[in-house]
Every structure is written in C-alpha cells, then in structure tokens.
Design a binder for these strands. Structure first.
Lengths: 184, 184
DNA sequence: CGCTAAAAACTAATATCATTAGCCTTAAAG
DNA sequence: CTTTAAGGCTAATGATATTAGTTTTTAGCG
C-alpha cells in the first residue's frame, strides 16, 4: 500500500557495516548513511536509531566470526591442530575487518553488545575439542584462556601495540601451541 | 603576569580521567569538564582539544599499568610466579579502572594511542624474566603471547563475554600457568 | 474509476557537541 | 603607573542525533 520503499533493515545494516569498516565508527553518521540511500536522515529512524544500528552491525560481526570458525574447525586432524586452525581463521577474519572486529569487542556500552544467545552458546563445539586436551573438568577454563589468547593477540596487533618487528603471525601460532601444550 | 589561573594541564587530565571512568567516554564532553572547573567550554582549548585530552588520559592509564606491574614483579620467586603476579596486578588494575582500561586499548584512532616509547620499552624487564622460561630466542614471541593472554582475558571479562559462571579469577590464573608451562 | 488507508518518506525544530576567532581582564614586571 | 601577555570570556559556526507532525504514494476495494 505504501510507495516503493528505498530502505530495508538488512540493507541498512550491511551498508552501515561497510561504511564503518571503511571510515571508522567516529566518522560514521546517520546523515552520511542516509545520503548513501538518497534519503533524508530522519527516514532512517523508522528502522534504527544509531545505537540499534551499531548493535546490529556488531551482531553481524559476531555471526561472521562464529561462521568462520565453524567452517575452519571442520577439518580432520588432532584436537590441537583443529583449535589452531580455528584461531587462525579468527585472526584472518579480524585482519580483513579490523574496524568492525574491534568495534564488536569494544563494548563500552551494554546496548552495543551482540545478543546474549549468539555468543556463549556458539563456542560449545570448541569446548568439546578443548576437553580432549585439558580434560572435561578444566575445559571451560581452558577454552576461556584460548579465546583470551586469540582475541588478545588480535587486538594488540590491530591496536598497533606490537611494534618491535618479528613475524606476528608466527608468534601467534607459537603462542597458541604453547598454550595448548600447557594444558596437556 | 596573568591573573590567577583556574586550570592547568595536569589537573585537567586527572579530572577527565575520573569523569570518563565514572560516566564512560560517550558521556564525556568538554562542556561538562569545563563546568566542573567553573569555566566556559572555550577556555579548555588553551590546554587541550578533546582528542589530545583523551590521548593524555590514555597515556596516564598506560603509565599506571606499567607502574603497577613493575611493583608487582619485584618479588622474590621463580620466574613463572613473578609473571603470574604481574599479570594479576594488571587484572586487578583493570577491574579497578575498567572504562579507562578499555579506552586505552581500544585505539580506534592512532592519535588516541599513548606515546610510542612509553609502551614497548616498558616491557623489557618482563621479557628478561620470560627468557628464563622460554629461552632467549623465543622470549619475544612468548612475551607477546603472555600480554595477549592477560589483556584478552581482561577485555573479554570486562566486555561481559564470559557469562557462563565459574571463578573468573581462578580461570585467569589457570590459563596463565598453563601458558607458561607450555613454554618450558 | 475513484476513494481510502496506511506505509514510507519528508519538513521542521530542538538540543548537544566540538571548535575557532577575537575581545576583555588582570596582575606581575619594569 | 604603564605595559604586556596569560587566561578566561563572548559569540558564532557547523555537525550531529533525535522527535513530532505532515505529506506523498499506491494497493486494494467498493
């Protein structure tokens, strides 16, 4: 009944994702996003306000990461190798989408965080693999450490905190392997 | 020659630090900061613009963390224990100053990052300890992994990404110890 | 074929920011 | 007592996010 819609939620989120990845969150504005669709700023508010839009972008980021890791983990190898592959997939994804990656984990505000369910549930398969290394009892602690190590390395790298040269990707792998060795 | 100054750089940075820690960066504004000093907004610009102010806050955060770890590391114990103590000191500091901690490591923008020199140089003592565990050749990789693990665990905790219960601090320690074991 | 309803976008207005240019005030130094 | 420059002030500009209320469009129905 209305007249031809120029906007829809999904397309908006995708466009916002790209704009943020290109120019950073600071430069991102509702005004610029509207302009990209040939629409006035206020029209966006039928779909999202800025906070909701960024939260949607973060949820998308999270979904992508989980998907990436799922695909990666589906190799036929010993547990340590499978976890290493998963970590490397996360590393690669983060380097392809550095801005939105950091944004998703920044979480200054509760409202910008991805949905609860999407997050913790999604790592259960990884925990099962981890259990093969650490034993069932320690698998949660061990998994958390693995997530921490991977995420920490990625963020420090992206934040430019490793400035003394060396092969960062090699160091990443060495650190992961040492960590897994330590749980055996 | 001028008349009694109501402002000075150091006090401004401290006040900004506190305001940000209390209310978050998003809520922080030059206007509110000026109000706290009974001064008009424009007056602040003789000292800082917003970007420079936040960078100064981040530098202060970094200085505090380095100091905290230096103090912690000065115990008489085996290398692994000393590194664990340092990591725990960082953990404790981050939990006392969660907002500014995350802000300092967020680094969306180059200009908000702490000074180059303050950062990497400061971890050399830790690298020396790490070398006792991993050997000289691997000490940089091993140290980077340790930083990553500690920082990653802290950020994921602060970001509310560990929502499945368990003793987080205990898991933190277990993860660090496993990592160090892996390098032995 | 014209009317109606509701979706979708628009206009207009408000409030908050950061930032700059130029002015005014004060007290220390000569 | 005059100079001078530091330090704060006024005023203005241009983004920005957001809301309320209005207008346009077109699908479906009588």
């Amino acid at each position: 009944m209305p007249y031809p819609s120029k906007l829809d939620s999904e397309t908006l989120v995708s466009a916002a994702f790209d704009m943020i990845e290109q120019g950073g969150v600071e430069a991102f504005s509702m005004h610029k996003l509207a302009a990209e669709f040939g629409v006035k700023t206020a029209s966006l508010y039928r779909y999202f306000n800025k906070e909701a839009l960024i939260q949607a972008v973060n949820t998308q980021t999270y979904t992508h990461i989980v998907q990436t890791m799922y695909d990666a983990v589906a190799v036929d190898a010993d547990p340590a190798q499978r976890l290493l592959v998963a970590a490397k997939a996360m590393y690669a994804y983060a380097h392809q989408h550095p801005v939105t990656y950091m944004l998703a984990f920044r979480n200054s505000d509760d409202n910008l965080r991805p949905d609860e369910d999407a997050t913790e549930q999604s790592v259960l398969p990884l925990q099962a693999i981890m259990a093969e290394i650490s034993g069932e009892a320690d698998s949660l602690a061990a998994l958390r450490g693995l997530q921490a190590l991977a995420h920490g390395f990625i963020s420090l790298t992206l934040a430019g905190q490793y400035r003394r040269g060396g092969d960062l990707e090699a160091h990443f792998e060495q650190a992961i392997m040492a960590y897994l060795r330590g749980w055996q």
